[in-house]
């Protein structure tokens, strides 16, 4: 069996008495598209923050391409090819959509600290291509602060793709979008991922989206992985059904 791209071993994080992530372990194979689902408060965002270096885990190990990344600074983890989006959209509000992507491209090509060259002409083609890929070509000149919510989600995706990542962590990439838009955005994400052989781990509440896009599904409940496998197997799992019982259409 080839070495997994990501190997997570017994990661834990508690906030006071709340065990937000309580011993999570799994392997993620190269090129896999996996959904991480679970009710609100299950610990998904916390786990993503740990992987991205924004939160320090209490315990555990995370090997990415065989190297330990727990404890590295966020910028160091991103440099290794792990990119992410945020549940609550995080963009640079006063910068244009194009500049938002440029910032990430300049960082990737290690030119963020150039003091005297005008940034206006740098990385423009690549950044515009990324914007076009997510369907934002027309909005490239507008400040992120005035973009519609759905467009912000797309912009986040474009930013996340700017470092030619190998592993993409998407925290509720379609939250807050209209149902029709959701399916389209995730289909787009999946096609980009396949084209670039990206590995994707995403959280999502819309089960239709999960079951059309994900190759495997992992269920988190109270900080623990309670099921993992092909979508249909997971759907049929009695424990999973019990967790979701009463939560209409699995969506919260």
């Amino acid at each position: 069996m080839p070495e997994p791209l990501l190997r997570v071993v017994d990661v834990r994080k508690a906030f006071g008495g709340v065990r937000a992530v309580d011993g999570v372990s799994f392997d993620l194979a190269r090129g896999e598209i996996r959904a991480l689902i679970g009710p609100n408060g299950a610990g998904k965002s916390t786990f993503f923050n740990i992987l991205a270096g924004l939160l320090r885990a209490d315990d555990g190990a995370v090997a990415y391409r065989g190297e330990e990344i727990l404890g590295l600074a966020p910028h160091a983890i991103w440099r290794r090819g792990v990119s992410r989006t945020f549940q609550i959209t995080a963009t640079f509000a006063t910068l244009s959509a194009l500049e938002n992507v440029q910032v990430a491209r300049l960082s990737h090509t290690r030119r963020s600290r150039a003091l005297l060259r005008p940034a206006g002409g740098l990385e423009v083609e690549r950044s515009l291509a990324l914007l076009a890929q997510v369907g934002l070509a027309e909005q490239s000149g507008r400040p992120a602060g005035v973009l519609a919510y759905g467009d912000l989600k797309k912009l986040e995706l474009a930013i996340a793709l700017a470092n030619d990542p190998e592993l993409l962590l998407l925290d509720e990439p379609t939250a807050g979008m209209a149902p029709a838009e959701r399916g389209a955005l995730m289909a787009l994400t999946a096609s980009i991922a396949r084209e670039r052989t990206l590995t994707v781990l995403f959280t999502e509440h819309d089960m239709d989206v999960v079951f059309t896009v994900a190759e495997r599904v992992m269920v988190l409940h109270q900080g623990r992985v309670i099921a993992e496998g092909a979508p249909d197997t997971v759907r049929a799992d009695p424990e999973v059904q019990a967790v979701y019982l009463g939560e209409a259409a699995w969506a919260t």
Partner: peptide, 22 residues
């Protein structure tokens, strides 16, 4: 310059900036 653009980005959203390698 890229330096100033990046500085503005960090001003607008520190976490986002950190997670694009800054």
């Amino acid at each position: 310059a890229p330096f100033g653009l990046t500085l503005r980005a960090a001003r607008d959203h520190a976490r986002r900036a950190e997670t694009v390698g800054i």
